[in-house]
Write a protein that binds this DNA or RNA. Structure first.
Lengths: 167, 167
DNA sequence: TTCAAATCGGACCTGTGTTGTCCGCTTTCG
DNA sequence: CGAAAGCGGACAACACAGGTCCGATTTGAA
């Protein structure tokens, strides 16, 4: 479907929220303000921090902070941080495990211009373009999953998942 | 990972094969010449025929035929035929299933420029660009690549780099 | 007329990838 | 010294795509 993962979408939302709030924000706080589950937000922030897009401050009174303004972050960077390198096909960078069965692939290596075009298109758009100048107060983005399965769920902490309307 | 499905890759291969052979080709014949499993080729051809890219001739002595020359088929059309509409996120201009719970998503509707940019980039590339001028037969194990194109743009990209490097 | 070849349309099962969650550890502030 | 918060990893469950097969229909040829 040529679609990117939901985590990337969450990352954009969290990043936009981070810019709107400004300063240092905690993962639970961002989760509450964005309506995404806390562990998911933490996961996204973690990947973002690993990619250098946000800066994580440990310890009490810690949190996350934007390393660069949104206008200076191209969308492609977020996608790379969350979803990995941008490549439409598996036949990139060698691919000695896919098409080796017959080596009849006539388009072998021809996808590079396509990937480059996509990458260029994604790099031309910054997060500021996505978030917009006006950052509306976003209290909820999506309802992840009802979490009906209780097989491995150990309610030790019994944390209320996220109900933006209930809270 | 922003990757399109393998079926689309197969479709490009089959289409290129169809152009190289010319005339009417049967699905088993294309499967043999392309190295793809017969049922898979049949499935791809079926979708391609449904999209109007190829013409299926039923009955004995039947087969598939290109409805248009490859140069007149943009890559985006193949992707749409196989993978469905091009949309990076589920929050595309309809989105009556995901974010409708709150409709407060700050990036709601902002993905459209991205989708359009991707679509434009994909539409600017024709299948003829992917299949190459005439090098559709690289069945020899000794001759892996004709090297008629300028592909070696990224020599080393095996590891998921954290930094997007120079774009 | 009858048979064979090939497409058409659908349903089915399996595998990979993504998603979402949790746990323990480390670090820092009060 | 205790609490808060990030960090790192691993895990199970789910969903989708991938791949296969079946029957039905159509058409050319014997």
């Amino acid at each position: 479907m040529l679609r990117l993962s939901k985590l990337t979408d969450y990352a954009v939302v969290v990043l936009a929220r981070l810019e709107a709030e400004g300063g240092v924000q905690t993962a639970p706080g961002l989760a509450a303000s964005s309506g995404i589950a806390e562990p998911t937000v933490a996961k996204v922030l973690k990947a973002l921090g690993h990619a250098g897009l946000v800066e994580g401050l440990r310890g009490a009174r810690g949190g996350y902070r934007l390393a660069r303004p949104l206008a200076g972050i191209p969308l492609s960077e977020v996608i790379v941080a969350i979803d990995g390198p941008i490549a439409l096909t598996a036949c990139v960078d060698g691919a000695t495990g896919g098409c080796e069965t017959e080596t009849l692939c006539p388009v072998r290596g021809r996808w590079d211009p396509v990937n480059q075009a996509i990458r260029a298109a994604l790099s031309a758009i910054s997060l500021a373009d996505l978030a917009g100048p006006r950052s509306a107060s976003c209290a909820g983005h999506a309802a992840p999953r009802p979490a009906t399965n209780a097989t491995a769920t150990n309610p030790t902490r019994a944390k209320p998942a996220l109900q933006p309307a209930a809270e």
